[in-house]
Amino acid sequence: MNALLADLLQVLKLERLEIDLFRGQSRKLAGGRVFGGQVLGQALAAAYATIEGREAHSLHAYFLRAGDPDHPIVYEVDRSRDGRGFSSRRVVAIQHGEQIFHMSASFQIPEAAIDRQADMPEVPAPESVPDLATAVAEAKLKAPDRPSPFRIHEHPFEFRPAELPDPLADVPREPRVKVWIRLVERVPDDPILHRCLLAYTSDYFLLGAASMDARMSSEREQLQMASIDHAMWFHRPARPDEWLLYVLDSPTASGARGFARGSLFTRDGRLVASTAQEGLVRRLSS
């Protein structure tokens, strides 16, 4: 298996310390912090470890402090409620004796009911568009004086942008991104693992969309950026090792905060998840 993907699967395997207490390992990504998606995926895995026969349908989280990638994170789960159809869990992530994150998640017994959704936008197929690194390099050639809104790093995912802002156009007032996402290799047939991986994936590009206008007009070193909160709703099952289209936009920014929302579609057009996030986007004084 791909080494980065094997490592990600290992990161999502938590050590149970007590009945409702778990420990997860950390990894260092760009910026020297723990990636927010790692904490989301681990917190959801911790909550799932206290659930039977129910599926996660939503989570709402706050990032309180930057995570230290050189130390593990402890997750404490509170079994808030187990009803006839729904269960609620609250998860607190602790590092160095302080809360760095907390999340509420809701789980439901599967039910058959009304099924409708918005249509997926028409976009080029993933095979017909370049990967993100190539797309960013091409944009840089077109507009060498404009900062890139995306940094390129090694990931256990493939990213193929179906739509990025025109680097020669004015800075967008309402940034929009459409990007195909897929794990680099197949993973086990485990629906719980799939949802935890989707939670991990969901943190990609949201802050990028919320800060795109600032990042296209200022160098990254001139900006202070961080995710503040994160919400996700799981509508239908999906495999993260098959192509998913992430459709994102950022309708507003104010008070040094940018807001972004996203929709995840399968290749055949099923809407499988929705996301929303607000992030700190602040220009540093010179």
Rank of each mutant, 00 (worst) to 15 (best):
L59T: 00
D131Q: 13
G279V: 00
G83H: 09
Y62H: 15
H57W: 12
N2T: 08
A253M: 05
P147Y: 07
A210H: 00
H96T: 10
S202D: 05
V92G: 01
L40I: 07
D82L: 02
L183C: 11
T275M: 14
T201H: 02
L284T: 04
L206N: 03
S88K: 14
M232V: 13
Q10Y: 03
F157Q: 04
H194M: 12
P121M: 05
R239L: 09
P167V: 11
L206H: 01
S88H: 10
L198W: 05
D78S: 14
A253W: 00
S26C: 15
R215I: 06
W180G: 01
A3M: 14
Y246E: 05
R176N: 02
A46Q: 09
P188Q: 13
V34M: 08
F86E: 11
V123S: 02
P172F: 01
P72G: 09
Q222S: 13
V136C: 09
A273M: 09
R151H: 08
N2S: 13
I94H: 08
I100W: 02
R195Y: 07
E111H: 14
D249V: 02
H155F: 15
R215G: 02
R27S: 11
W233H: 12
R283Q: 11
D190K: 10
S250V: 03
L14I: 03
L207K: 00
E127I: 04
H194N: 13
W180Y: 13
E111K: 10
V77L: 05
L284A: 06
E98R: 12
M1S: 13
A135K: 08
G255L: 10
A43V: 07
M103C: 05
M120D: 05
D70P: 06
R195Q: 14
R195G: 05
H235Y: 08
A162Q: 00
S211I: 00
R261H: 10
F157I: 10
G279Y: 03
A273K: 10
R261G: 05
F101G: 00
E242F: 06
H60C: 04
L14M: 08
S88Y: 08
E98V: 14
A210S: 12
A45V: 10
M1I: 08
P124V: 07
M103N: 01
R239N: 08
S217N: 11
F63H: 05
I73P: 00
R65L: 15
E98H: 14
A256K: 15
D166K: 09
Y246V: 03
Q42T: 09
W233D: 07
L17N: 09
V34P: 01
D170M: 12
G85S: 14
A6V: 08
D229R: 07
G255W: 04
F63A: 03
V184R: 15
D190L: 11
Q108C: 07
P237F: 11
G24T: 00
A125K: 15
G24L: 00
S254E: 14
L5K: 08
A273W: 04
A214V: 00
P144W: 04
G31M: 12
R27N: 10
D20I: 02
R151Y: 06
V177E: 03
L264C: 08
V11T: 15
P149R: 04
I73M: 06
E154V: 01
M103T: 02
A137E: 11
D115P: 02
R283W: 04
R267Y: 06
E55W: 09
I192M: 14
L197T: 02
L248H: 04
F205A: 03
L141Q: 12
A162H: 02
